[in-house]
């Protein structure tokens, strides 16, 4: 599973990254969380409100920071 956090490194992006890591830990998933900070790359996903969560190249959440429980649900669907 490939997990990406899109965002330019603002407070919300860091919160999202932390929540994703917590969700992975709690589910026992050993996935690498990649940070995408390049604006061109972010825009290529069609994302215009950051932060965004991308799982296996599919945009799952954008424009807000989901709670750990919600991220767990998203990751379990995979």
């Amino acid at each position: 599973m490939k997990i990406k956090v899109l965002g330019s490194g603002c407070a919300n992006c860091k919160r999202l990254e932390a929540n994703v890591k917590k969700a992975c830990e709690q589910l026992g998933i050993n996935a690498k969380v990649e940070k995408v900070q390049d604006f061109g790359e972010i825009a290529a996903y069609g994302v215009i409100s950051t932060p965004a969560l991308v799982v296996d190249e599919e945009v799952k959440v954008y424009g807000r920071v989901p709670e750990v429980e919600e991220i767990k649900k998203i990751l379990e669907e995979r």
């Binding site: 330019s8 603002c10 825009a43 409100s49």
Partner: peptide, 17 residues
Amino acid sequence: TPFCSCSAVPLFIGFVE
């Protein structure tokens, strides 16, 4: 609409695009 300076650039690109 919510705004923080960190989302200004993706927003700008998205609008122009």
